[in-house]
Each structure stands twice: as C-alpha cells, then as structure tokens.
Design a protein around this nucleic acid. Structure first.
Lengths: 199, 199, 199, 199
DNA sequence: AATGAATGAGAGTTCATTCAT
DNA sequence: TATGAATGAACTCTCATTCAT
C-alpha cells in the first residue's frame, strides 16, 4: 500500500523514538526487536528504516539526544552568580527532578551504554563526563572557598551523582512522599556528605 | 561424542556459571547466546543443558546465589555488640569491598533484574530487601540513640546504598587511589549524610 | 535480501502448502522440517513464517481445507432425488474417485490427525463426522425403505468408509485395472455388505 | 552408578519395547525421543543402546515381531479342514479380535511403515503380504468351489482387510456393543461383500 | 513513506548417539 | 548394564535488514 493518510516523516520518527525508549527501558535494547517497536505504533518493521538506518543508530540517537537535553536543561537552570552552597542545592534539586520525570529516557541512558558500539559509546561517555563536570565545578569552587570539606573531588562527584540517580530505582509518582519532600531529604544528605555543616 | 576424560558435572556447571557471569556482565543477558558461553569454556551449547534446564534458570541461579552469598557474608561480618556508629562504618566498608571485589557478580545482579521472569524476579527482590534491611536497622538504631539525624529512614537507606554501589561504575584495581583510601572517603561522606557529626 | 521479482504472497503460500502436503505424505509431519519444505520450493525456512504462523498452523490448514473441499465436492455431487440404492452407488464411486485422485491430501488427513493439537484435532474430527454423516443418512434411508439390511448403522458406516478408503493404500494409476473397473468391484462389494441383494 | 538391583537384560529390553510401542502409537515414531522412552521407564536414554543398537532397529523390531506374532497366531487358529465359508468367518473373527486387543502394536504396524528404512520396510511388507495371503487363499478356494462371487481377488482381499482393520479407529472396550456383537455384524458384512449369500 | 515478502544468520533447545565411569 | 556428560547436527522460530511495489 501507500502512505497512511496524514502520516508525516518527523511524526513517525518521533513515534518510533517514543516506542523504542519505552520498550528498551522495560526489556532492554537487545531483547527488543524492530518488529516489536513497529507493532507498538502500528508500523511494519521495515518502515522504521525509512527513519533510522539501523537499530544501533536508533539507540545512539536516544542516548545522545537525552544527554544533550540534560545538558541544555542544566545550562538553562545554571546561574553562575550563585554561591557554591546555593549551586549545590540547585543541582541536587535539578538532577532529582529531571531523573524522576524523564523516567525511561534516563534509565536507558544508564542501562544501555554497554550496547553501544565503540564510537557511539565514546560519544555518549563524553557528554556524560561533561554533565558530571557541572557538579565537579561546584564542589571544587565550594572546596576552595572552604564551605565544603571533601576527601576526593572525583570520588565525591561520582558518589553524589550515584546517590541522586538512585532515586530512579524506587521513586513512584503516587508514593508516600511528595517530590518536594524527597528533594529536601536529599539536599540534607548531600550537604552532609560534602561536609557543608561542619565548622 | 561422549564425556571428555576427567570432566565432572559439578566442575562443568561451575565453569558455565563463571563464563556466564563474565559474559552477561560485559554484553548483557539478552545479548549473550548459549553458544557464546559454550565457546568460552570449550563446550557445545547443548551440553550446558545437562547442567541448567534453561538460560533463564542459569540467570536466576546466578542472581539468587549472589544475593545469598552477600547476605551470608554480612552475617559473618556483623557484630551486634557494636554501636550504631561502628556498625555503619563497618557496613560501608563491607559493602564497598564486596562490590569492588566481586565485580561482575554484583554488576549483573543490578543490571539483569529486568530479564528475570516474574517469579524469579520476586525471589531476588525479596533477598535484596533483606539485605537493605541490614542497613536500615543500623540507621534506625542510631536514630533512636540520637547519633544519626535522618530525614526519612527509607530514603536514606536507598540513598546510601546507591551511593556506595556506584563505586562499581568507576573503580579500577590499578586506579589512582587504594581501596583503603576510597573506603575512608566514603565513610566520611556517609557519616556526613546521616548527620552523624552534628551536635 | 528482499522480495524476489514477481513473488506474490498468495502464490508463495500455495507453493508452501503443496510442498508440505507432498512431504508430509511421504515422511510424516514430525519427520519433515521447515527447511525441507523451503528447500523444495527454493525458499528460506524463515520466509514460510510470513505465510503460516507455525508449523502446526500449516498442518491444521491442510487438514481443515481438505475436509472442507471434500464436503463441498460431495455437496455438489449429491442428488436428493435419488433412491438410497442409487445414492449409495454414487457415494461409493465418489469416495473412491476422490481418494485415489487427491492422493497426498487425503492420505495426510488420515495419518496426521494425531499430530494436531487438541483444538485443531477437535475441529477436524467434527468435519470428518460431518462427512461420515452423508453415508450414514443414505444407509439409514435405505434401511427404512427396506432395501438395505444392516446390523448396526454406525458400524456399517465406519466399515464401508474404511473399506473404500483402503484403496489409497494400493491404487496405482498405471495398475492392472482401470478406475472404472475398480469402482464396479467396490460397488458390488458394498451393495453386498449392506445386504442390498437379499430378498 | 551400577546396575539397578534386580534388573535383568531381557526385562529391560521388554520394558523399552512396551514403552516404545505405547509412545509411538500415541505420538508417532518421529515425534518420540529416546529420552522420552527412557523417562517412561526410569532409564537414561543412553542405556537403551545396551539393548537396541539404534532407534530404527527398535522400530523395525516392533513391527517385525508384531507381524510374526500375528502370523503365528493365525497359524494356530487355522484349520485346513474347514470349508471356505467357515474359514472366512474364522478369519474375520480372528482379525477383528486381534486388532482390537493388541491395539498399539497393530496401530504402529500400519502407521509407521513409512518410517522404516528401505530394507526394513521390504522385510515388513513381505510379512504383511504373507498375512494377506491367508485371506486370499480362503477367498480363492471359495471362489473355485462357487460359494463366493468375487469381482477381483486382489481387490477383494485388500478391501476386506481394510474394512476389518478400520475397527481399530473407533473400537472402545467400554463401548455400546460387545466384541461378540461387533464380530457378528462384520461377519454379516463380509459374507455379503464376497457374495456368499447369493444363489 | 509504507507494505509485505524475502534473505541469511542465529537464537534457545532437543536430538540420536557415544563413552568414561 | 546403568549413569551422566558430552558431541554435532538438527529443530522451530525470530532476528536485522533489504527491496519491489
């Protein structure tokens, strides 16, 4: 047959991305077939190749675009006039909010790294390092002004990000606590972990 | 043809487990084939089925056995005569050490949960909750004696475990820092995060 | 790669059915592989699954369609204005002719019943009972008008059908006797068996 | 381990034969595995090879032995002093009784012919022809003495045997009719079919 | 830009058979 | 004579991908 009425290229590509993100998150990249993605959006597997040259390209796109969105989102939120303390709190709140809201997107960006081919992996890792750099710079600044007391800059950066990202593993929108409350608790823990309250 | 000279059932099963853990960690359960596992240990794929009834059973076994080893290891390390502060430090050191040493084992127990079929998933999750209970009890005790200042017991438990487990993501045996140093930094961060140093 | 020039779905499906009937008849359903069927018609085994969801579906289709063709063929031949004697002769000639001509088709419909899964088996058996009903009605009518002398309606129905169907086991197109002669002999035997010539 | 206590070669071989007959009858030779046969009688598949060199030998044995038993059974029953009429009745009763009693045995001897390799097939067919010869001789004798009126000796032989053998397809031990009644009905039909009652 | 049919490879699993024990 | 572990080939079915239409 011919094109379905009203279907437009960009729209279809987006539908594919959405279906893929959701399926990859639930079952993993390797366990999801092009047919499965197509079925989800009423499309033959072959048609996906009009929009993405290979399954690997599709995955790469999802991860790169996620990282770019994340970086841009923080860029918009960042305010270089803030003190390190304020900046750290802002980062904690931002990271948490972003990671519980984007859900699947974020999840696969952690889980599917190993399914990227070498070049794609390197590209995504570079973006991830860039994002971690944001926290590292804050911690570094605060250490230099003496408000943070940190054992090792690299370890602390990784530890804080791991702690925050872990929220993805158990957060439920209809859970016992509101996101605001959760954020407050994490702010408390992170500021404690970087020795902000010591005198 | 027939059995290789000197081959014994239990040994072969162990070799399969070892190869599987390593391959699953590197490429993911879904992306690893029985043939690949066999190739690694010079065995036909079919022969694996003399020791494990399905690929899913093999995975389930790896995760369950890992969790049981982890639980038993902490049971041996635990010392109920310790104060909550001492217990927390012991837990941090234990968890870190276990998670950098066992490597692949631990890694797949986090990554491959979603590849477990329903029943197996429930079984592993139950063991995981049991392990988290160990930290929760410590935090609870310390909160009651007033040495920890915690916003929410559940969140703090999850956050601390996520922070510690994150070490898996970047630890290299030949890295810049020794495991002892790394442990010290994490102890510092965790005690900070649970408000141990506040007055 | 892609579709062969000129290949069309329905045609391929028909070629598969033809090859399958012939192979199932010769070697039996369980002993024939999808690859073997594909090889026969220059098709990859996998491509068969574009037309039949499983091997079992393929078998079910062959048997059901055969029975439906058989039922329809007799419907066309049937003439309700005939006397029971005439009807019996017509049935004998029809059944024989159909069973030596269709060959493989008929053969597997007797041999492969046990390879049908429960539901499919029930479906085919129902059609078979329907066909036997045609003979039973003739015998019943003739018994009531007194031209047939039958011990048991059910047994006689089964016995006559078995006798006629047996022709499949030894008939050769280039045999000693013509189909017409064979039909005449069977008519003689069947009319004898139902006591038509007794006074 | 070693031999199970009390197990003796001939006994085991018999158990294998019994299990095989039953499974082959239910699922077909090609669909039954050596493991399945073993499982039925608590034996490893490999152990079967102590008693039968291959699966094909096992099948051949079952069919040949069945045919030999059948031939010997008729030999014992045969009474050359009987008239052709009496002999025909005796054959009908014998064949029916044998075919409903031996069940599986008989069934596979009809169904699994095509799974025999060439030589074995020829061997079994020879025995089958021999058995059919018994009926043919009776019909021939009766034709010559003028008590039977037969169109074609070969066709009638095949037709009568097919009619009788068909009983296997529907006979149930707990059915509506006793075996004696059934035999009587078949005697009636067969004598009719061979024109015995005509004057 | 979509369909439906195809390829060739490979998945998990089972098979008949062998043989050290 | 039985077990349990192995081989190598085969199974049904699914995969990513291609392409005529």
């Amino acid at each position: 047959m011919a094109r379905k009425v009203g279907s437009v290229g960009a729209e279809t590509a987006d539908k594919v991305r959405l279906a893929a993100v959701s399926l990859f998150a639930r079952y993993g990249y390797a366990a999801v077939s092009m047919r499965q993605i197509g079925r989800e959006i009423d499309l033959q597997a072959g048609a996906i190749y009009n929009h993405f040259p290979t399954k690997q390209h599709l995955l790469r796109g999802l991860l790169v675009e996620h990282m770019e969105r994340l970086l841009k989102a923080w860029d918009l939120e960042e305010d270089t006039s803030r003190s390190p303390e304020e900046a750290l709190v802002a980062f904690v709140r931002f990271h948490l909010r972003y990671h519980v809201e984007c859900g699947d997107d974020v999840f696969i960006s952690y889980m599917e790294l190993r399914n990227l081919e070498e070049d794609n992996y390197a590209e995504v890792q570079k973006l991830r390092r860039q994002y971690e750099g944001n926290l590292r710079r804050i911690l570094d600044a605060g250490t230099k002004t003496g408000v943070f007391h940190i054992g090792d800059l690299h370890i602390t950066t990784m530890a804080v990000i791991a702690m925050l990202t872990g929220v993805m593993g158990w957060y439920r929108q209809d859970g016992r606590l509101s996101l605001d409350e959760i954020e407050a608790f994490y702010v408390e823990m992170v500021t404690g972990a970087v020795g902000m309250k010591e005198d």
